Computed example of a mutant assay.
Amino acid sequence: MKAKLLILKLLVAFLLCLTIIPGFSQPPNKMKVLAYYAGGVEGLDIYDVNQVTHLIFCLGRLDGNKFKVRTARDTAIIQKMVLLKKKNPQLKIILSLGGWGGCETCSIVFATKKGRQEFAQSIKAHHQYFGTDGLDLDWEYPTIPGFTGHKYGPHDKKNFTRLVQELRKIGTQYELSFAAGGFRQFLEEAVDWKKVMQQVDYVNLMTYDLISGYSKTTGHHTPLYSTPQQENSTDFAVKYLLKAGVPAEKLIVGAAFYGRVFENVPNVNNGLYQPGQFKTTINFKNIPTQLAPDSGFVYHWDNIAQAPYLYHPEKKLFFTYDDKRSLELKTKYVMDNRLGGIMFWQLAHDPYYNGLLNTIDLVKKNYTPALQSAE
């Protein structure tokens, strides 16, 4: 009887060990969900901040060599973001610099040691004043052409490396990231991936706008996979950087909470990969009213790109975007390939309830990743 009791106690102890030893337990999902936010103060109270890990303030600018929050409204937004930590104590609040059209003097300022040092110290001062947790550099773009009229040159590549090295000096307690173009030219030319990724915590891949406002043909602006007609995609960017030695856990893929409309698109292949001119953007939350099925737009799904699109055959309008189906697949892709997370531009484009963020959150909580790799 004593022998049986001893065996029972040993069995209970063994089962208890299985539940507490990390090697036997299922680790919690650490996937980052980063929300760029360029809306008003009032919207921050409506979205569920427990569904995101990071809120990124958009966007600060350069004032001379220093980082500047431009308006009292922007100050109020940052302060409100920091207060949201009461709802989600794990939430990180990130400042950002630049954006499309917002880095006119970056190439000039960051070309000097003084410029880089003064900028870094101004970022530290902002972190200390607001209680923010990090910086996202959104320089579009170092080294290669970006916004019309903005200076760029080959020297930007080394200076971008020097910039992140200088920013790292202000303290490892602050997160440091940058937004990167998801297209081949940026991946090949813009930054020194080996040196830069040693300094930053992660990179936010802008795997959207791959068909941009400058494009003269239609396509998918935020596809998951490449097609014979379109090389640039989320998968293309991820595989390129993994091959370049970037750790998977430092890769954050991008999703679009908006779409692009092209006009004068011939009724061939439902408008996909056809000549056309960019017309406008439409936020995801406005699609049901602006592009409703009864308005003549027809829904299509590309099984290769894993991306949706709409086409209006009478008006010859084409619309490329992310929807719940494509967001579910992108989020699963991130989890299957053990990537760092998913980000999106931008939260204010989402419906307040049951939108694309909710889709990401449901997948994160309920999906069991496959054992595979993007490599």
Results as ranks from 00 to 15, higher is better:
9 K>R: 15
10 L>P: 07
11 L>R: 08
12 V>C: 11
17 C>G: 15
19 T>A: 15
21 I>G: 06
24 F>Y: 14
30 K>I: 07
34 L>G: 07
35 A>E: 09
37 Y>M: 09
38 A>S: 15
39 G>N: 11
43 G>S: 14
44 L>E: 04
47 Y>Q: 05
47 Y>T: 06
52 V>W: 07
61 R>A: 12
65 N>S: 05
66 K>E: 10
68 K>H: 13
72 A>L: 14
86 K>D: 13
94 I>S: 12
107 S>C: 09
109 V>R: 05
113 K>M: 10
118 E>D: 13
118 E>A: 09
120 A>M: 10
121 Q>F: 05
125 A>H: 05
126 H>D: 08
127 H>K: 09
127 H>M: 14
129 Y>G: 02
131 G>W: 06
134 G>T: 09
138 D>S: 04
157 K>D: 08
158 K>C: 01
158 K>T: 13
163 L>H: 03
168 R>N: 12
168 R>I: 12
174 Y>Q: 09
174 Y>L: 07
174 Y>W: 10
176 L>N: 10
176 L>A: 11
182 G>Q: 01
186 F>A: 12
190 A>W: 00
194 K>H: 14
206 M>L: 07
220 H>S: 01
220 H>N: 02
222 T>D: 12
229 Q>W: 01
232 N>F: 09
232 N>Q: 10
243 K>H: 12
252 I>C: 00
258 Y>M: 03
262 F>T: 06
262 F>H: 06
273 Y>A: 00
275 P>E: 02
278 F>Q: 04
279 K>I: 07
293 P>A: 06
294 D>M: 05
297 F>L: 09
307 A>T: 09
314 E>F: 09
318 F>H: 05
330 K>H: 00
332 K>R: 15
334 V>M: 00
335 M>A: 05
336 D>M: 05
346 Q>F: 08
351 P>K: 09
352 Y>T: 13
356 L>W: 02
357 L>I: 15
359 T>R: 11
